[in-house]
Design a protein around this nucleic acid. Structure first.
Length: 258
DNA sequence: AACCACTGCAACCGCAGATGT
DNA sequence: GACATCTGCGGTTGCAGTGGT
């Protein structure tokens, strides 16, 4: 299910993200934001390309991400919007709070596509298809058509940062990590644990330990105003940045969970 | 138990548009 | 206007898990 880790010609790591990498990214973005994805991995201590960091953050680590457990309303909304918008996943995702374009895209291809195909085949309602792809036409959709989209989705959901996160990302790579929730579950475990809060715990754990690490360090608040470390006085003892050496070590996170 | 085909999904890739110089 | 850089998007791939034989 996941790509095995490897490195490209530039030495950038590819493949599955480890809990430790997640921690670094969460800690960094939470504290400093993402002003430049390309530069970010250098400062966050990640041997990843900016694109990979951005993707990981946007699709899995950022707050309010919902994982798995699509409600009927959500699925209907996706189908309806797909009928209307085609493969504009980001536009569809914009109508589904907490869902990412990537996840919606996957869900479409693995579930809804077949379902809508079947429905279309079985339905006498052969609608005015504008899509080159299969166009859904089911009664449940017809019923939902006149309802405002927002009403159709999550009428009563608005919760805290990680509380909507219900699924834990897969990672079979870094099982040596001592992070408490690891090893991470298989995909089957992931799907079966969607309803519980293991992923919440995982992300919260990462957040907590990462932020503790930052808090414990003598890191100053305006690091980003001086991001290029012209002055080493900004660097707490033991702190290290990838700009200093190609053999990067990340002591802020090292002791407790490496 | 071993093999194999299929499934689901995290992650990668390439492109296009936006923005800056 | 031309070029470079960055970001976001959609398509596609890779591979562990699963179920059937």
């Amino acid at each position: 299910m996941v790509r095995t880790p490897c490195r490209d010609e530039n030495g950038m790591k590819k493949g599955t993200w480890t809990p430790d990498e997640d921690r670094k990214l969460i800690a960094y973005v939470t504290r400093y934001g993402y002003w430049n994805w390309r530069q970010l991995p250098k400062f966050a201590g990640l041997s990843r390309c900016g694109k990979s960091c951005r993707l990981r953050w946007m699709n899995y680590l950022r707050p309010n991400i919902k994982r798995g457990n699509y409600s009927k309303e959500e699925e209907e909304t996706i189908v309806k919007l797909h009928e209307k918008l085609g493969n504009r996943w980001s536009a569809i995702a914009a109508q589904l709070p907490g869902r990412t374009d990537n996840e919606i895209k996957n869900h479409w291809h693995t579930n809804l596509k077949k379902r809508t195909n079947n429905k279309q085949c079985n339905s006498s309602f052969s609608s005015s298809a504008t899509n080159t792809e299969e166009t859904p036409s089911c009664s449940s959709l017809e019923a939902a058509v006149d309802q405002p989209i927002k009403k159709a989705i999550f009428p009563n959901t608005e919760s805290t940062v990680t509380s909507q996160v219900t699924q834990k990302t897969d990672d079979r790579v870094d099982n040596s990590s001592q992070l408490s929730p690891s090893p991470q579950p298989s995909s089957s475990e992931v799907s079966s644990m969607s309803a519980d809060n293991n992923w919440v715990n995982y992300v919260e754990d990462i957040n907590a330990t990462s932020m503790e690490a930052y808090a414990d360090s003598q890191f100053i608040d305006d690091f980003w105003t001086e991001p290029f470390l012209a002055d080493n006085s900004y660097i707490p003892s033991g702190f290290y940045t990838p700009l200093m050496d190609s053999e990067f070590v990340y002591p802020l996170f090292g002791g407790d969970f490496l």
